[in-house]
């Protein structure tokens, strides 16, 4: 056994766990934080993604014994952090995933939203290609990813106060030129945000 001091979702936590446990096992089976999912348990799927000192890592391959003193953010920590920073309700990434129906079974979602949160923290206006790159290590067996990318773009649009590009299902229900115009306007507005002022 080893006593670990961790900063979990902003709280100092002292926890005793077997020396050979992974961070995922400590989170789920010692601390009851079952939001981080145990999918493949060997590094393939990204369901166990947590933020370690702000960066997405795979908790199933991280030895808890090597996390002494480090800051861990799990999905359970997003809403409290948002509220603490003066926001109301869930983190905007969570709200956008909810609104876009960016899930079916939901198993990939905690990891997916943490990867998305970390991306938006380092790059406020990522392009679709940058979003795809940042979420490449999170596999989803259900959605086909489209709604997930749209959810991240909705969170971006909300943050900078612009209209999001129409989602794929919306675009199918409007005249093609209108869908194209709105997608272009969104892309241009996002580019303007990127340019240093």
């Amino acid at each position: 056994m080893r006593v670990l001091n961790l900063l979990i979702n902003g709280d100092r936590v002292e926890v005793a766990a077997p020396e050979h446990w992974t961070l995922l096992e400590v989170l789920r089976y010692e601390l009851g934080l079952t939001g981080s999912k145990q999918g493949c348990d060997k590094g393939d799927c990204g369901a166990c993604t947590v933020l370690l000192d702000g960066k997405p890592v795979l908790a199933c391959l991280t030895l808890a014994a090597l996390c002494e003193g480090r800051a861990v953010t799990t999905i359970e920590g997003l809403l409290p952090a948002h509220v603490k920073a003066g926001g109301t309700g869930p983190d905007p990434v969570q709200a956008a995933f909810d609104e876009c129906g960016a899930l079916q079974c939901g198993f990939c979602q905690p990891g997916m939203m943490l990867s998305a949160r970390a991306l938006l923290d380092r790059n406020a206006c990522p392009t679709r290609a940058e979003i795809k790159d940042a979420l490449a290590g999170n596999l989803c067996r259900c959605t086909g990813y489209t709604q997930i990318f749209e959810a991240v773009e909705l969170a971006i649009a909300r943050r900078i106060g612009i209209e999001p590009a129409p989602r794929a299902w919306e675009a199918q229900r409007m005249p093609a030129d209108e869908a194209e115009r709105r997608a272009r306007e969104f892309a241009e507005a996002r580019e303007r945000q990127k340019e240093p002022r």
Partner: peptide, 9 residues
Amino acid sequence: VAGPQLRTM
């Protein structure tokens, strides 16, 4: 190599 999380680790 691999995906973003694995490249960080």
